[in-house]
Nucleic acid binder design. Structure first.
Length: 433
RNA sequence: GCCCUGGUAGUGUAGCGGCCUAUCAUACGAGCCUGUCGAGCUCGUGACUCGGGUUCAAAUCCCGGCCAGGGCGCCA
């Protein structure tokens, strides 16, 4: 056994001297058995290395040389830079401990020349994620979120956790998953919106939450999930401009963190990433309507843009930009009307080209106005009593946003399908694994 | 939810009424090779999405289900 030695990551073998002993742990990516010598390509989460097995050096040579791909090994061996290995470095095995044997054939080859369908990949996600190009995505996403968290913490935000099982719809009604909750009918929350706002009334001043959001919409696109990760903030004594500033700086900080921690991953994936300049451009909804009309589309003021429209707008503004001052008709009840033009609102979307990443606004903080807005949207204020109550006893003006973490990850890595940046995606039909 | 396309060995594909006892690659199994490195070579194993229908005959045509991919609606 080699347990007393520290495990060396394959990536760190470069720093190990010629002839020094190391202990490696990983999976058999490939095994080539010749007449009286065998080669194992061992993989851990940092890379691969060739291990040479010789019958006279390894006591269980016969057993090891017959192992299936993806079996798990612990190997003690000597670093050898003078062998014929093409990589210039290999391990001469001294001891091999078989930790687990993989069944064969694999449902999905890790290193096969044939590509698997996306569906097959997702059905066998644990194997799919053994490919570096896939698991690297989640390391990048982790850094991205860490960078955003760091910025928000630096701005005195408090990370909070609000319930996902709720009694009432957040923004309407039709698109919620029903959940049996003992004798009550409840729903999975589509957004932490109402709870974030209640926390503004609690005096917490600035909060953010990273958590799941559920949408029971039957969409079937490469950029929608029925469960996604929402990064939400809400801040008191602030308007939409303050919130936009938080957003662009949080995104910038996230990207900086990715560049700091994942430069090798970006290089491996062949992606170029640059820190975006802040502030991001702000374009009003009205100006966007002008762009759309100039391209020859008929457009009625007050409508939302469709994919084709956003594509045209995106062409004008490569990179991140805000679309601001949306008409009230296309924004939720809690959106603050623009004091100069009540048809418009103090709202914004963060876009990257044609893709929407974030939706935000200054919120209504006056309870009477809020009730009026509920009724204008065809909602019954009494269904939201627990929420409106928090506005009646001193609700500060506030603003915030909700950002789709997977969407942002897709954008910075230029990945076309949101399922690729989700470990176990939930879409219209997929609930397993 | 709508429109289009598709579902053939473990994986990815060819075939699209009888010549299919179904192609090729990869994987898997057996063998050869003291140094391979997308190893190579020989031999072998392994498949027509499900349910109806049309036809002398269906992987192939028709209908429906399920699933997937692309587009749209809608959104984060």
């Amino acid at each position: 056994m080699v347990a007393e030695m520290n495990r060396t990551s394959i990536r760190n073998l470069d720093a190990v001297g010629q002839g020094e002993k190391v202990r490696l742990n990983g999976w058999i990516q490939d095994l080539r058995k010749l007449k009286s010598i065998s080669f194992v390509v061992l993989r851990d989460h940092t890379g691969t290395v060739q291990v040479t097995l010789k019958p006279d050096a390894v006591s269980n040579y016969n057993e090891v040389s017959e192992l299936s791909r993806e079996s798990v090994l612990e190997i003690e061996g000597k670093v050898d830079r003078k062998s014929g290995a093409k990589s210039g470095l290999e391990i001469q095995a001294l001891n091999v401990n078989i930790l687990n044997i993989a069944r064969s054939p694999l449902p999905l080859g890790i290193d096969d020349p044939v590509e698997a369908d996306f569906d097959t990949r997702l059905n066998n996600r644990f194997l799919d994620l053994r490919k570096p190009e896939n698991n690297i995505i989640f390391r990048v996403e982790s850094s991205l979120l860490w960078g955003m968290r760091k910025y928000l913490m630096s701005q005195n935000f408090v990370e909070v956790h609000t319930p996902k099982v709720v009694a009432a719809a957040t923004e309407g009604g039709a698109d919620l998953f029903r959940v049996k909750y003992f004798e009550k009918d409840t729903y999975l929350n589509q957004s932490p919106q109402l709870y974030k706002e209640i926390l503004m009334s609690s005096g917490m001043d600035r909060v953010f939450e990273v958590g799941p959001a559920f949408r029971a919409e039957e969409h079937n696109t490469p950029r929608h999930l029925n469960e996604f990760t929402s990064v939400d903030i809400e801040m008191s004594f602030a308007d939409h401009n303050d919130a936009m500033s938080m957003l662009e700086n949080a995104v910038k900080s996230g990207i900086e963190e990715v560049l700091k921690n994942n430069a090798d991953a970006l290089k491996f994936l062949g992606k170029e990433l640059k820190v975006p300049e802040v502030p991001f451009p702000r374009i009003t909804y009205s100006d966007c309507v002008g762009i759309v009309e100039k391209k020859g589309f008929k457009f009625n003021f007050g409508e939302d843009f469709n994919t084709e429209h956003l594509r045209e707008i995106g062409k004008e503004f490569p990179g991140f930009y805000f679309i601001t001052e949306w008409p009230a008709t296309v924004r939720p009840f809690y959106t603050m009307p623009n004091p100069n033009d009540p048809k418009l609102t103090n709202s914004y979307d963060l876009q990257f080209g044609e893709k929407e990443i974030t939706s935000g606004a200054q919120r209504v903080h006056d309870p009477d106005m809020l009730e009026k807005r509920f009724m204008e949207k065809g909602l019954n204020p009494s269904d939201f009593e627990f929420y409106i109550k928090a506005f009646r006893y001193g609700m500060p003006p506030h603003a915030g946003w909700g950002l789709g973490l997977e969407r942002l990850t897709m954008i910075i890595l230029d990945i076309p399908n949101i399922r690729s940046v989700t470990l176990f995606p939930r879409d219209r039909t997929r609930v397993v694994p």
